[in-house]
Design a protein around this nucleic acid. Structure first.
Lengths: 224, 224
DNA sequence: TAAATCATTCGGCACTTGCCGAATGATTAT
DNA sequence: ATAATCATTCGGCAAGTGCCGAATGATTTA
C-alpha cells in the first residue's frame, strides 16, 4: 500500500486528526515552519490543524500535508519512507535499503569517516545497508526479524546504534547463518576486545564511526 | 491495517475523492439510499459527495461514510471486509472464512439446497469455506494463491462460481496437494461426467447449488 | 402500465474551513 | 544576554462544506 494512503487513512480515521498529523510530522522530523514553508502557507495554519482548531479538515488539506511530508523526506534521502515500507517493527529499524550495483566498502568507510578495528581488509563490495538500534534489536528481534535485516542481500553493511561495548551485536551476527559484509558501530561508548575477536573469527570488518545515524542514513542513500 | 484506514486513505489521497467513495459504496453493494438512511442523512448528500460537488470533504464526513459502509457489511455477515483482509487478489476471491468449531457438512449442504453428484457420503465436518470465481481463479492463480484458498484449514468447502462444465476446478484441486472436504459449484451451466469422475477419484463430494454466491456467503457466515 | 424505489440536480443557508498576520511565548544558538 | 528560530493563539474574512428538500429523471417491480 502506498505510504500516502497509509498516513492519510490514519489521520482521517483518528479520533484526533490533529494529534495524528503532528505525530506523523514529528516522525518525519519536520518542523511546523519547514512544512509550512514547503507548502507555501503560514505556520499558524499547521499549528491550527495540529492543535485541533479545525475539527474536520478537508481531504485536500490532508493530502497536501501528507504529500509535503513525504516529499521532504524524499529530498532528504527517503529514510522514513523506507522504514515504513520494510514490514518490520519500526522502532528498532532505523533505515534499510538495497542498491542495484556493487559499491566499494572502502569508499563507504571513507565517506562515513570510519575506523576499522580489525585486521580484516575492506576490499569487498556491498549491495545494501541496514541501520538498527542495537539495544532495541537485541530486545525485540527473533530469528525471522534478524533475517529481514539482510533485505535482498547479505552483501551489506549493518550499522548498530546504541552500542555500549559492542559484544551483543557481534554475538547476534555470529549466531545467525547470514553474515554481512561489514558491521559498523555508530558512536559506541567503547569497543570491547571480545567484540573485536568475534569479528575477526567471523571475518567481518568491524568499523566505528563518530557520525550520527541520521548523517549515515543520508550518506548511504546518496550512493543510490 | 484496519480496513477503515485503508478505505479512508484511498479516498483522501484520490484525485477524485467522490469517485472513490462511490467505488467503495458499490464494492460494498450498498445503495445511496441505504447508506443515507443508515447515517440518518438525506440521500442527496451522498449524491453530492459522489458527484464531486464537494471538492474537499471533511475528514469527519469521510469517517462517517466509511464507518457506515463497514458496519452495514458487518450486519450482512462481513463478506466484503473478509475479502479485503485475506491478502489475496480480490477479484477472484469472493469470500473466505474459518470457524472455531466443527460444522456438519450434511447440515451445510441441506442449508444451501445442495445436490450431491457423487457416491461419496457427506458425513464429515468442515472448519471453513472459500468462495471463488471459477474463471478468474483459473486465469490468475498460481500455486501459492491456491494454497491461500485453504485459509487455516483444508477441512473446508470450496465454492466455485462461473462454472461451465466443472472440469477445470476439479483438475486444479487434483493437482494441488491439499484437498478440501467438499467442492460446491454455484449455479453451473452443467456438470460434465469427467468432473464427477475426478471428484470420486479424489474422494471429494461434488455438490451443486442453485443459490447465488451472495446467499451462500450469508448462509455460511451465519454458521459462525 | 402504474407504482415503488433509487439517483440526481440545484438553490438555499448556517456553520466551518483555509488562510492570513499580529502579538506573544518558548527554545536554541551565539 | 541577545538574536534567531520555532511554536502558538486568535481575530478576521472569503470561500466552501454539510445538510436540507423540492423537482426531476431513471430503474425496478408488481
Amino acid at each position: 500500500m502506498d505510504i500516502h494512503e497509509k498516513i492519510a487513512g490514519e489521520i482521517t480515521i483518528a479520533d484526533n486528526p490533529g494529534e495524528t498529523i503532528r505525530k506523523w510530522r514529528e516522525e518525519f522530523q519536520v518542523s511546523q515552519l519547514e512544512l509550512a514553508r514547503y507548502l507555501s502557507i503560514s505556520p499558524s495554519v499547521i499549528s491550527d490543524y495540529e492543535s485541533g482548531r479545525r475539527k474536520s479538515p478537508g481531504v485536500l488539506s490532508i493530502k497536501k500535508i501528507v504529500t509535503g511530508l513525504v516529499e521532504i523526506d524524499q529530498k532528504r534521502g527517503g529514510q522514513v519512507i523506507r522504514r515504513y515500507s520494510s514490514g518490520m517493527p519500526s522502532d528498532a529499524l532505523i533505515d534499510i535499503s538495497d542498491y542495484n550495483h556493487d559499491i566499494s566498502l572502502e569508499r563507504v568507510i571513507r565517506m562515513i569517516n570510519g575506523t576499522n578495528y580489525c585486521n580484516i581488509g575492506l576490499n569487498r563490495y556491498i549491495r545494501g545497508y541496514t541501520i538498527v538500534d542495537g539495544i532495541k534489536a537485541i530486545l525485540s528481534f527473533s530469528y525471522s526479524e534478524y533475517s529481514k535485516l539482510y533485505g535482498w542481500s547479505s552483501q551489506r553493511i549493518i550499522f548498530f546504534t546504541e552500542v555500549k561495548m559492542g559484544r551483543s551485536p557481534m554475538i547476534a551476527i555470529r549466531v545467525h547463518p547470514l553474515k554481512p559484509a561489514a558491521v559498523v558501530y555508530i558512536q559506541p561508548d567503547r569497543i570491547d576486545e571480545l567484540a573485536i575477536k568475534l569479528a575477526e573469527i567471523e571475518n567481518i570488518p568491524l568499523i566505528v564511526t563518530d557520525l550520527d545515524a541520521y548523517s549515515i542514513s543520508r550518506i548511504m542513500a546518496s550512493l543510490k
